[in-house]
Amino acid sequence: MEIGYTLMCEQSDPRSLVRNAVAAEAAGFDFSVISDHAFPWLEEQGHSPYAWSVLGAVAQATERMELMTYVTCPIKRYHPAIVAQKAATVGLLSEGRFTLGLGAGENLNEHVVGGGWPPANTRHEMLVEAVEIIRGLLDGGYVNHRGTHFEVDSAKLWDRPEDPVRIGLAVSGAQSCAIAGELADLMIAVEPDAELGAAFDAAGGQGKPRVGQMPVSFDRDRDAAIDRAHDQFRWFGGGWKVNAELPGPAAFAAASQFVTRDDVAESIPCGDDVDAVVAAAAEWADAGFTHLALCQIGGDAQEGFTTWAESDLLPALRSAHRSS
């Protein structure tokens, strides 16, 4: 597996995110993914800068790491034609290091433009239509589209990479796997579920990369690491199908009120035990994932994490999983 670093907009300000990206590249991470939210999941996280501005700065501040949105929703807050323009520009700024990760979105972020939150089936219809528009624009030429959900009138990207930006799609079930297998260049998932990969393969994804993301809470004091993870990451307990529907941080706080410190400690590697992270990453390797982005919890804990990753964690992960 390639090992990546998560630029998590929900827990850091934009200048810190750029510094973190530079540190992650220097530490030896292979790639970096960035979340694209309008809101944090919990108020304790405290941030949500515009991911695309951060990406532009990161593209100029780094030289080697691959970059990727994890993920952008092109169906409500952004029109797909605008997503295509942003992706093409970051592709040029990064000199081909950018992959556009897309998904059907969360109410948490997309509600800000009004108009209600569509049911999952409708969101998937919208996503398919959006990908068709984005693909057409990234391939060059004029695009006209009159669809069920979107219209595009004589759109064209005047600045785009010679090689079109790769597109990844987030999956969480049979329907999204079918869409991703047919339309995406790679699969994105937030759980090490081999069945997702099998469904992706069956729909045409055989041999394509699979990118996962795993939270980690590094601290030399394990209790402090657990406290931080519980404070800022307990929202994960509801599961994706619930989380996609919740409208704001207050709803996530209510939905996660019964998630305990022990629940978090059992689900997320906490502390400075390298073997615990390697073992957790093995679940992703065993499920067929080719890339795994680590997400260090806590905006103020990034410097210590990247230092530890460079000296201890990355060598151990590469020894265990490079040939998986």
Rank of each mutant, 00 (worst) to 15 (best):
H111V: 13
Q11A: 13
L183M: 15
T122H: 12
R146G: 08
V171S: 13
A276P: 06
E310M: 09
D185Y: 08
P49C: 06
S323G: 08
R77M: 07
I82D: 00
Y78A: 00
L292G: 03
V143I: 15
A87Q: 02
E95Q: 14
D163H: 14
A287T: 02
V54S: 05
M126S: 10
R220P: 06
A293M: 10
G4W: 08
A57F: 12
D286N: 09
Q296Y: 01
S35N: 06
P118S: 13
W284G: 15
G304P: 08
K208M: 05
T99N: 01
R19Y: 02
F305G: 11
T99F: 00
D139N: 11
G304S: 04
D231P: 04
K208Q: 04
A194W: 12
A38K: 12
P14F: 09
G248H: 11
H124M: 06
K208H: 06
H47I: 11
V278F: 15
L67R: 02
Y5I: 00
G212M: 01
P209F: 09
L169R: 00
R64Q: 15
A202L: 15
V90L: 05
V58P: 13
Q45T: 00
W41H: 15
R261G: 09
E129P: 07
W117T: 07
A27C: 03
P118H: 12
L108W: 14
P247K: 05
G96S: 06
T148Y: 02
L317Y: 11
D272G: 03
A265K: 03
S172C: 08
A27Y: 02
H79G: 10
L294Y: 04
F39Q: 15
A189M: 11
Q85K: 06
Q257Y: 12
E132D: 14
R77G: 01
A276F: 11
G304L: 06
V190C: 03
L186W: 15
L314F: 08
Y142G: 03
E25W: 04
K208P: 08
H124T: 04
R135P: 02
A38F: 07
F31V: 00
S256Y: 06
S176M: 11
R160P: 00
H79T: 00
V152Y: 00
E129S: 07
F233G: 01
E25K: 03
L138M: 06
E132G: 05
L313Y: 04
M187W: 03
V112M: 08
K86P: 00
F218S: 05
G105D: 10
L313N: 03
G96K: 03
G28M: 08
Q60T: 14
A130G: 10
C9W: 11
V113T: 12
F150C: 05
S154Q: 13
H79A: 13
E2R: 14
M65H: 13
S256D: 06
D153Q: 10
V264C: 07
G116W: 03
L67P: 05
K156M: 13
I268E: 04
P80T: 01
P40T: 01
F218V: 08
V216T: 14
E2K: 11
A202T: 02
E44D: 10
D36V: 04
D223S: 10
E245P: 12
F252N: 07
M126I: 04
G114K: 02
H37N: 15
K241D: 09
H230T: 04
L292H: 07
T307R: 14
L138C: 03
